[in-house]
Amino acid sequence: MLVGVAIVLVLAVNVFRAVADVLQPLVPGISPSASASESREPEPVVEPAEPGETNPGLPPRTWEELPGPDSTDPDWKTLQQSAIYAQPVPLLEGCPEPELAYDMGDLERIATGQMECIQAAFKPIQAALGYSTDDIPIYFYEGRSVDTPCGQVSAPALYCSTQGGAIYFGEDSLNGASWMDFGVKDVTGHEYGHHLQAQSGMFQAEYAVGQGGNESARRIELQATCWGYAMMAHDPTQSVGEASLVEFEQYLRATIEDGIHGSKDSMAYWGIRGLYSADMGNCNTWTVAPEDVD
C-alpha cells in the first residue's frame, strides 16, 4: 500500500511539506494479467451513498465513537477540532470507472479523471470553510524522483503543499495501480486528503505538536488514508460490497511498516473506517490514543 517519508521545510512562519507515498510492490503470484480485481465476481448494484450518508452497499458494522477533543492548546485544537470535521463526505460525480493502469498513459488518464471529480466534489465544502476552491495541478514523472517546489523527492506519489499545492504521480505508482482496479482511486484520494489537511492548517499544527516525530506523522497519514477511502465509498463507480471489502483490506495490509504511515492493523482500521464514514469527522485521528495510530 502506501509508505514513504515526509519532508518538512520551514520557511519564515510557513510550513511547506512534501508528503511522499510509496506503493508496495506487487504481491508475489499476482501478475497484471491475473489481477485480483479482474477475478472478482460482480457485486449487486446498489444506490450510491448520498452526501452525509454511509454507503448502503456496505455490510452492517458497528464502529466505536471516537473520543472528543481533550486539549486547549491552539495547535492541538486545530488538529482535534477542525471545522472540516463537521462537513459531510461529498458525492463524487463523473469519476472514471475503476480500471487497472499498466503504463504511464493509463495512469495519467485515470488519475486526471479521478482528480477532476474529487476537486469538483469538494468545492462547495471549501467555499463554505473559506478555503481556496482553485484546482490544484497534478504532474506525472518517470523514474523514482522528481524536483518540486518542496525540493527533490524520491517517491512514486507525493503531495507538495507550497504554492497552493500539487500532486505528483511517478511510474512506480503503477505497482499498486496494476494490482487492484481501485489503486489509482486510493492514491488520488489519499493525496487530495493531504491537500485538505494543508488547507485546514493541519500541516503547520502537526509540525508544532510533533516536532518531526513519527506519531504525529502517522496521524496525518492515517487520516489521509481514511479520507481517501471515504471518498471511494461516495464514488458511484466504485463497488463497496462484501467482496470489495476483502480486497480493500488486503490492499491496505500490503503496507510496508515504516513507522510513519502506520502498521498493517492501523492502515486496515482507518481505511475501512473511512468506507463507513458519512462525515469527515469520522476520520479524526487526533483524539485517539497512540496505540490506535501505531
Score class of each variant (00 low, 15 high):
1 M>F: 13
4 G>L: 09
14 N>W: 07
15 V>R: 01
20 A>K: 00
31 S>H: 10
32 P>A: 14
47 E>T: 15
47 E>H: 10
52 G>C: 10
54 T>K: 14
57 G>M: 11
59 P>K: 09
69 P>A: 07
78 T>Q: 08
79 L>W: 07
86 A>F: 05
89 V>Q: 13
90 P>F: 07
92 L>Y: 06
94 G>F: 05
107 L>V: 10
109 R>I: 01
115 M>S: 14
119 Q>V: 05
121 A>S: 14
126 Q>N: 12
129 L>A: 04
130 G>F: 04
134 D>S: 13
134 D>Q: 15
134 D>H: 10
136 I>S: 01
139 Y>Q: 13
142 E>W: 04
148 T>K: 02
151 G>F: 12
151 G>N: 09
156 P>W: 03
157 A>E: 14
158 L>K: 00
164 G>Y: 02
172 D>N: 05
178 S>R: 06
178 S>L: 02
182 F>N: 04
186 D>S: 06
193 G>H: 01
203 F>I: 13
212 G>L: 10
215 E>F: 03
216 S>Q: 14
219 R>P: 06
224 A>L: 05
224 A>C: 12
225 T>W: 01
231 M>T: 02
232 M>Y: 05
236 P>E: 12
237 T>H: 02
240 V>R: 00
249 E>W: 02
251 Y>I: 00
255 T>P: 00
264 K>Q: 14
266 S>V: 06
273 R>D: 08
276 Y>T: 08
292 D>F: 14
